[in-house]
Amino acid sequence: MDKRFLGRTGLEVSELCLGTMTFGPGTDEPTAHRILDEFVAAGGTFVDTADTYSGGVSEEIIGSWLKNQNRDGLVIATKVYGEAGPGLPVRGAGRKHILAGVEASLRRLQTDFIDLYQIHVFDDATPLEETLTTLDALVTSGKVRFIGASNLTGWQLQKAIDLSNHRGLEPYVSLQPLYNLLDRDAEHDLIPVAVNEGVGVIAWSPLAGGWLSGKYRKEAGGPPAGSRSGQEDWDAHDNDRTWRVLDVLRSVADEVDKTPAQVALRWVLQRPGLTAPIIGARTPEQLGDNLGATGWRLSDDQVARLTEAGDKPLPYPHNILAMPQFRRAKLQD
């Protein structure tokens, strides 16, 4: 598995990030440890979790595994925002909750530091300066190495970067947005901001909740047995665009002798600004299939066909800005 730098930092991470949201009720501890072992054996170093995944159990499972690993060879990412504990209504990205959250995550992970500490959701109720100064203090203390964010809008990400630059604070070095062949709204503002500012992009749900795994068929008329999707999710995706994307995905998969999931992950890996997709394997078998996305490349034509299949009309004002009569070439030196 190749390594990539996270944004403009000197932090190297594997090109696939192992997501652990299912660790707990969905994936028991022995199976989770096997998945972690196999991920590392394949060259993986980047593991993502959150304080709220399975009520903290995901972090605990990683912690029980991590204590027997080469800690310096791994990059552990977690998040803060949700409930501080069962039944507690404390939420957000305020100083009190962040400081309590980092201590709880360190205990569950059984580690002295967190490589990447991320704000899970933008907090409207807390001044952004309070959030950023608190995170900056955590980096200064050594408890956190780098900071990032997830689920922001473009202006929220840009404002956070500008405020950090203005105040001389540690900046967000990564963004974790929803991004895949079907969900591409991040292309309008978020990814351009990330590329322009040198922020690494870690895409969650790169298989669109299983829709890009190849198991969904239009003629079935509903979600496949054993899937996490319900009828509501099926109805939301049952449209010409989805089936067009899946048809092209299967066609390209046949051409390169890969599974649809491997091609969908490879497409994300080759997109501008992307550092790593987060693979959410619930079983070792799913992990093995996802690992097949590494070690090869799609051709430019294949990438273009996949991208074109999922293109949608641009929203305002991007549709205006894309008009040829309004585009100006940069002056050459």
Score class of each variant (00 low, 15 high):
residue 50 A to Y: 04
residue 51 D to C: 10
residue 53 Y to R: 10
residue 53 Y to F: 05
residue 54 S to W: 01
residue 54 S to E: 15
residue 55 G to L: 15
residue 56 G to D: 02
residue 58 S to G: 04
residue 59 E to W: 00
residue 59 E to S: 00
residue 60 E to R: 09
residue 60 E to Y: 15
residue 61 I to K: 12
residue 63 G to N: 10
residue 64 S to P: 08
residue 65 W to C: 01
residue 67 K to H: 14
residue 67 K to S: 13
residue 68 N to A: 12
residue 68 N to I: 15
residue 69 Q to N: 00
residue 69 Q to S: 01
residue 70 N to L: 02
residue 75 V to Q: 11
residue 75 V to R: 03
residue 76 I to S: 04
residue 77 A to G: 10
residue 77 A to L: 06
residue 78 T to W: 05
residue 81 Y to F: 12
residue 81 Y to E: 14
residue 81 Y to V: 07
residue 84 A to E: 09
residue 84 A to Y: 06
residue 84 A to P: 13
residue 84 A to D: 03
residue 84 A to R: 04
residue 85 G to M: 04
residue 86 P to R: 11
residue 87 G to C: 10
residue 87 G to P: 02
residue 88 L to H: 15
residue 91 R to P: 02
residue 91 R to L: 14
residue 92 G to R: 00
residue 92 G to V: 05
residue 93 A to T: 04
residue 94 G to E: 00
residue 94 G to L: 01
residue 99 L to E: 03
residue 101 G to D: 02
residue 105 S to N: 01
residue 106 L to H: 05
residue 107 R to L: 07
residue 107 R to K: 14
residue 110 Q to T: 03
residue 110 Q to R: 10
residue 112 D to Y: 09
residue 112 D to R: 06
residue 115 D to L: 13
residue 117 Y to M: 01
residue 118 Q to V: 05
residue 119 I to S: 08
residue 119 I to L: 12
residue 121 V to M: 09
residue 121 V to F: 12
residue 123 D to S: 03
residue 123 D to F: 04
residue 124 D to T: 06
residue 124 D to W: 09
residue 125 A to W: 12
residue 125 A to Q: 11
residue 126 T to G: 12
residue 128 L to Y: 09
residue 132 L to M: 04
residue 133 T to K: 12
residue 135 L to F: 00
residue 135 L to P: 00
residue 137 A to Q: 09
residue 138 L to H: 09
residue 138 L to F: 10
residue 139 V to S: 13
residue 139 V to L: 03
residue 140 T to N: 05
residue 140 T to G: 07
residue 140 T to C: 14
residue 141 S to L: 12
residue 142 G to Y: 15
residue 142 G to N: 11
residue 143 K to V: 05
residue 145 R to F: 04
residue 146 F to T: 07
residue 148 G to W: 02
residue 149 A to L: 05
residue 150 S to V: 13
residue 150 S to K: 14
residue 154 G to Q: 02
residue 154 G to A: 08
residue 154 G to W: 01
residue 155 W to H: 05
residue 158 Q to K: 10
residue 159 K to Q: 07
residue 160 A to C: 12
residue 161 I to R: 06
residue 161 I to S: 10
residue 163 L to C: 14
residue 163 L to W: 04
residue 163 L to P: 07
residue 164 S to K: 13
residue 164 S to I: 09
residue 167 R to Y: 10
residue 167 R to S: 08
residue 168 G to D: 07
residue 169 L to R: 11
residue 169 L to A: 13
residue 169 L to Y: 05
residue 170 E to K: 07
residue 171 P to E: 07
residue 171 P to G: 05
residue 173 V to K: 11
residue 175 L to P: 08
residue 178 L to M: 11
residue 179 Y to D: 06
residue 180 N to T: 15
residue 180 N to M: 06
residue 180 N to S: 13
residue 180 N to W: 14
residue 182 L to M: 15
residue 185 D to H: 13
residue 187 E to I: 15
residue 188 H to Q: 11
residue 188 H to Y: 13
residue 189 D to M: 03
residue 191 I to F: 02
residue 191 I to C: 03
residue 191 I to G: 03
residue 193 V to F: 04
